[in-house]
Amino acid sequence: MSAMLDLTLKIWRQDGPKTRGAFKTYHLKGISTEMSFLEMLDILNEQLIQLGEEPVAFDHDCREGICGMCSLMINGQAHGPETKTTTCQLHMRRFHNHDTIVIEPWRARAFPVIRDLVVDRTAFDRIQAVGGFVSINVGNAPDGNSVPVPKVNADKALDAAVCIGCGACVAACKNASATLFVGAKVSQFALLPQGQAERVQRVQKMVAQMDKEGFGSCTNTSECEAACPAGISVEMISRMNLEFLKATVVGAT
């Protein structure tokens, strides 16, 4: 079942946000196909430490595909070649002996590189901070069953809410657009009764902040959907567009 791979890695190394980066090539032998991609990088880092070279910095945490911390453009594909898979869930069995693997950070003006493969994704937080919520203080909530939510709407809202905030949509989009990310949040609340009170302002504020962060616009290529590890559909973008249109027509001046 398990085999061993010899690999060539071309990895983006950059000391800090202000310094220039470059690709560096590494050779790695005896990588088990059972390993995850990040475990392969762990091995590389262990070897680098032994050689006295600073290990490659990369973001990761839960290693089970849910925290959204891991990123990486692997051979030009966000989170690597598998669909609906994060880098941490990508396994080396997907690669072949003597493959060359190019590893780059997410590239977007709104996601500046901090070091090596680590980028700053706090732009997403700032977008959330202007509207990614229902303004309900603790203590105000009515009984959970007081407002029925049709199952189909609840399911659809969850389809939107499963976004892990990894930024693969931005990384994969030729325009570095964040519309899938923002569209998912807007859609989640647009589909639920709880989101109605702030429906108009939410989409306007979140779109304004998204633009302020310097993301590009959507040209409906669907690359984001193909790259999204959570399987979020581009329908979310259209729903946001419609929400925005409605908000423009009926919203305050």
């Binding site: 594909q77 310097g214 590009g216 690359e223």
Partner: peptide, 15 residues
């Protein structure tokens, strides 16, 4: 859109 990605990828492949 061009400004949104000042540094491009080494190689990019569609998924």
């Amino acid at each position: 859109n061009t400004a949104a990605r000042p540094i491009g990828y080494y190689g990019k492949h569609s998924k």
